[in-house]
């Protein structure tokens, strides 16, 4: 390798000293990539230059040769920084691939089955700002056809938030079929979270159930971003709010449960604050913006609405999400 590098460098330098041409300089630039590929350090490059130069130029003044001692010494430091950079880059790649595996595993915690019932039109989208998400969503149809939906948001970002998220998933799995009333579910989850989470972390969550028999929708909220309720007949949106403390702060918390009837075409929207805290031109968007964006798309399916909203907000933020984004729509069909 050294011999061929020497040869190449000598040819380049000879040609440059003869013609002073841009072509030779262009070759030198290409050559530098090759040197880096071969792990050639800055100090080796300096030394290569000197030995080639010594061969080409006759009677090099001693000062010129000596001055290279100084340059070489200085370049050793750059060489070390370069090697350190390479090793840190390798380590970053390692971490990145570990994180990819973790993110993959996290996605398996989320439900992915198709919702295909006569009565319900359902759509959800959840996109993490980084690799791991602090948002969690859930939907499930129980044995008698009641349809449960939930969105949770761990306050905090990144890996710690993602790890707490898995706790919500496992806690939900331990709920029995009888525990389906939203307030009761949040009370149970709160007990689990309070016992297992750091004091400086907490989780907000909204949980709702649609009962197809009575067409009633019940929900409760643990300090979560309010959702929306769309009444088809009146063509109006209402805020979906219920009183309740965030999960994990106090062991015994009661949650208010509210309910109303879903008529054909009515729907509820659950979301995480990553949606309403989308920043367009540096300003948070208003909840009204979300409403009007949905309103323009009432003719679409629930899944199409959430997808399009995400695409539009992602574009408006120049594809830089600042927070995890989760948006869910549950509509009673006609």
């Amino acid at each position: 390798m050294q011999v061929s590098m020497y040869r190449l460098y000598k040819d380049m330098l000879t040609s440059y000293l003869r013609d002073k041409s841009e072509t030779a300089l262009y070759h030198a630039q290409q050559f530098s990539k090759q040197m880096m590929e071969q792990d050639m350090s800055p100090e080796e490059t300096v030394s290569l230059h000197l030995s080639v130069f010594q061969e080409l130029a006759e009677d090099l003044p001693e000062e010129v040769t000596d001055s290279f001692d100084l340059l070489l010494e200085v370049m050793i430091g750059y060489g070390l920084a370069y090697r350190e950079h390479q090793s840190l880059r390798d380590r970053q790649q390692e971490l990145e691939s570990e994180l990819n595996v973790a993110a993959q595993m996290q996605r398996t915690l989320l439900p992915d089955k198709q919702v295909d019932t006569e009565e319900i039109d359902f759509g959800v989208i959840s996109v993490p700002a980084g690799k791991m998400s602090g948002d969690y969503y859930h939907y499930d149809e129980d044995s008698v056809g009641n349809f449960a939906v939930a969105v949770a948001d761990v306050i905090g970002k990144g890996v710690p938030a993602a790890m707490s998220m898995s706790m919500i998933k496992y806690a939900m799995d331990t709920l029995t079929d009888k525990q389906t009333e939203p307030a009761g579910v949040l009370e149970s989850l709160n007990r689990v979270v309070e016992r297992n989470i750091d004091e400086d972390m907490f989780i907000t969550m909204m949980y709702g159930v649609y009962y197809p028999e009575s067409h009633q929708f019940h929900f409760a909220s643990a300090g979560h971003e309010p959702g929306f309720f769309y009444r088809s007949a009146a063509d109006t949106f209402e805020s979906l709010e219920a009183k309740g403390l965030v999960l994990g702060v106090s062991p015994k918390v009661r949650y208010e449960e509210r309910g109303f009837r879903l008529d054909p075409g009515d729907f509820v929207v659950f979301l995480s604050d990553g949606v309403t805290e989308s920043r367009v031109d540096g300003e948070f968007i208003e909840r009204d913006t979300v409403v009007s964006m949905i309103k323009e798309r009432l003719h679409l399916s629930a899944q199409e609405i959430v997808n399009e909203l995400f695409e539009e907000l992602e574009k408006a933020q120049e594809f830089q999400l600042r927070d995890d984004f989760t948006l869910m729509i549950l509509r009673r069909k006609f």
């Binding site: 030394s47 000197l50 070489l72 070390l80």
Partner: peptide, 11 residues
Amino acid sequence: FGSVDQARITT
């Protein structure tokens, strides 16, 4: 040792 290695050892 060559000049590069001399400088490395010295550093």
